[in-house]
């Protein structure tokens, strides 16, 4: 049985294993860190379909199919599919689920979905209720712009704090038995809101949630940043990463070192910075970096203790217009390799 340690953190008595994992993405996502590491690359943003929403569903299904293929499993072998995305009613996940035929549980955590779906999957596996769980998420630049911002061809200017929604998806097949990487501890974050209203500054909106989850995780587990090879935040970008360091220091007395990295700053190359401004974002950002780069590094023994903290901005398409500030959440999963 999983046990609670401290106020917020949950420890798994028997670890849960990442049996296989895969990331897919668009041409831009294949240009940076993940070059050559994506299971599939889609050069055409439409994926040959007639809407951005269908393209995103296809993207998510492609990641799921790739993860299943790598494990040598079929959809029928999987007991539960947990997924979510940014689109209304999590439609990309639902439509991907239609093609997979696995019992499905939809979740919404905005860009924190990869950590959320993995944490929920790990708990269900540990309970013994299921033997394998497919956890995944996706985002698509064009679909997200259409829903949350302006039409794609609208001639607006993006402020330097704006982030670029990644066109990418990731999927992890979790299993009760197997080899590293393994999930040993996790934490569902609290919803935190420090009053940021600027929907073009998501990093600033999410940094307090990340600081709260990371600070609470260190407190509960009696650890400090040096105890980890990598503290990987989801998509705080340039502005949010800076604010996270300040908040952890002022509110928790924790100084983050160079072992903190942010997927939003890892995904794209610096030469792509003209377009992406303050970094990458979207559910697919942390999902693709985790599944395409970090999990393989853990499996190969290059990393042994990675605290994965994906962050999500919980605004809706109407809440900023109603004058609401942006609540955010961060979920943490501790992923370990062979000691």
């Amino acid at each position: 049985m999983a046990t609670r340690i401290g106020m917020d953190t949950i420890e798994l008595q028997t670890p849960v294993f990442a049996e296989s994992y895969a990331a897919v993405g668009g041409a831009l996502e294949n240009g940076g860190l993940l070059q050559g590491k994506l299971a599939r690359v889609f050069d055409d943003a439409t994926l040959g379909l007639d809407s951005w929403e269908k393209a995103e569903a296809q993207l998510q299904q492609a990641a799921a199919d790739a993860a299943l293929l790598r494990a040598g499993r079929k959809g029928a072998d999987v007991d539960l599919h947990i997924a979510g995305d940014l689109l209304g009613q999590c439609s990309a996940s639902m439509f991907a689920g239609r093609g997979l035929g696995i019992p499905f549980a939809g979740v919404y955590g905005a860009c924190s979905t990869m950590a959320l779906s993995m944490a929920m999957g790990a708990l269900m596996l540990e309970s013994g209720a299921v033997g394998t769980v497919l956890a995944g998420t996706s985002s698509h630049f064009c679909a997200a712009e259409k829903q949350f911002r302006q039409p794609l061809e609208y001639g607006g200017q993006r402020p330097p704090t704006a982030q670029w929604t990644a066109t990418a998806a990731g999927a992890v097949l979790l299993s009760a038995a197997g080899d590293a990487p393994k999930i040993t501890q996790l934490q569902f974050g609290r919803v935190v809101d420090l009053g940021v209203k600027d929907a073009h500054n998501m990093g600033a909106a999410m940094a307090p949630a990340a600081a709260n989850t990371i600070g609470a995780f260190f407190r509960d587990t009696r650890t400090m940043p040096a105890d980890y090879d990598l503290i990987l935040t989801g998509d705080l970008g340039l502005v949010g990463s800076d604010l996270l360091r300040q908040l952890l220091l002022s509110d928790w007395g924790v100084a983050l070192g160079n072992n903190h990295k942010d997927c939003g700053l890892l995904l794209y190359h610096e030469e792509q910075a003209n377009e992406i401004n303050a970094g990458a974002s979207g559910c697919g950002c942390s999902a693709a970096v985790l599944c395409g780069e970090i999990l393989p590094l853990i499996a190969a023994g290059h990393l042994t203790r990675v605290l994965f903290v994906a962050t999500g901005a919980l605004l809706s398409s109407v809440s900023p217009l109603q004058g609401e500030s942006i609540p955010a959440v961060a979920h943490a999963v501790l992923i370990e390799g062979q000691k």
Binding site: Q157, P159, T161, G195, N201, P208, D242, L243, Q246, A278
Partner: peptide, 17 residues
């Protein structure tokens, strides 16, 4: 950190156009 303090921190950390 209070909402007011954070507002100042965000303004300092965010690059202007």
């Amino acid at each position: 950190t209070s909402t007011e303090q954070y507002k100042t921190m965000v303004e300092t950390a965010s690059p202007n156009s």
